[in-house]
Design a protein around this nucleic acid. Structure first.
Lengths: 195, 195
DNA sequence: AACGTGATGGCACCGAGTCACGTCACCGCG
DNA sequence: CGCGGTGACGTGACTCGGTGCCATCACGTT
């Protein structure tokens, strides 16, 4: 069962828990699933669950720190001559490039669960607000003043989330980065038309 | 109706609970305050607390439904010839006019508590997202297409929250509505400068 | 005087989250 | 070979947010 010279415990405990959680949430809903039951399906216990995730909700949003960081660093890494919107575009490239197909596969299921659970939508709104705040700070670091920095950061988050949502739909052939770039262009056009 | 011989229970139960909660949150922090203690200070019990508020967090955000509604209706009530941004301006007027001095007095204390409690900031982010979504829907009702509707709605929420925050600071002599209008203008300028 | 009503208290219960402590394999070391 | 340290996990008790059911008791009504 533990092929070769593996450790004492099955590896990938956190991932097993996350999969069990997503499965159960899809089957019985978020509120109808207890942490005990998630741990049980993963062959573990409640205590171990909370050792791997700070809370029941976080099990679905785990592993986004890397994406968050790449997004923010993409702003800082943009050439110094870039305008705010060009920096946002560069950050979108940096953020979309490393996204894997596996994440696309989970995206649809995850979106369905989140959409049907106010508590999770709340968590998502907060994560996006936090990301936007960090992006705005990175833009201010480049000398962009408020409220332009906050606005540009909001455009970035909006373009990415919209693009990811479309990318997860079947029949979408384009690259995530391509969609994100187009979303940003459309936002820019709508913004210009607002006056 | 309650004159002379008052009723069996002290009136304003919900308000007493809300005041007790805000006091205790300011004294001991949000996480360090139990619902039992809030109810105790109000001379009531936990059960009664949950009869008046759907949750511990909601005690601070109670009474915002009316503001939310006026804001959204302000969009619909704008003249049919108004541009999206003009409709947003009209909605800001409709939303800011009925705000009382009492709400200003609580604003500062409330802001401090919310700022120091991630759980409450999360709730606030969600409420703002929900408001923005409703405003965007009202704009779409007027024929504004996405993503322009969402962007304009975001500007509205941003202008209001920024204005309210400034309005709560001491030494601020202007009207809430005036500040909101100026915030909107500044956002408009920053938006135009983004390209 | 009897009755219905409505806001409240009391109580049992569930689930999320925390904590202290025990367990057991693996690892390094003598 | 044995021995103690380490790290991941289990166990059980606990707190607290939140729900549901039933009892209470003043008030108004009939």
């Amino acid at each position: 069962m533990w092929g070769g010279a593996m450790g004492r415990w099955e590896p990938g405990t956190g991932e097993r828990l996350a999969r069990a959680a997503l499965d159960l949430f899809a089957e019985q809903g978020y509120g109808g699933t207890t942490v005990d039951r998630i741990a049980e399906r993963a062959g573990l216990t409640k205590t171990t669950f909370f050792r791997h995730f700070p809370g029941k909700r976080e099990v679905l949003f785990a592993g986004q720190e890397a994406h968050h960081r790449r997004f923010v660093e993409g702003i800082a890494a943009a050439p110094a001559t870039a305008t705010p919107l060009e920096a946002v575009g560069a950050a979108l490239d940096a953020a979309t490039a490393p996204v894997t197909r596996a994440q696309r596969a989970m995206g649809a299921r995850l979106e369905a669960v989140v959409a049907s659970t106010p508590e999770l939508r709340e968590r998502q709104a907060f994560k996006r607000a936090a990301l936007a705040a960090d992006l705005a700070a990175a833009l201010r670091e480049r000398g962009v003043l408020d409220p332009a920095a906050s606005l540009a950061a909001d455009l970035a988050v909006r373009a990415f989330t919209g693009a990811f949502s479309r990318w997860c739909r079947r029949g979408e052939a384009r690259t995530l980065g391509e969609i994100a770039r187009q979303e940003l262009r459309e936002l820019q056009i709508a913004m210009a038309a607002l006056e």
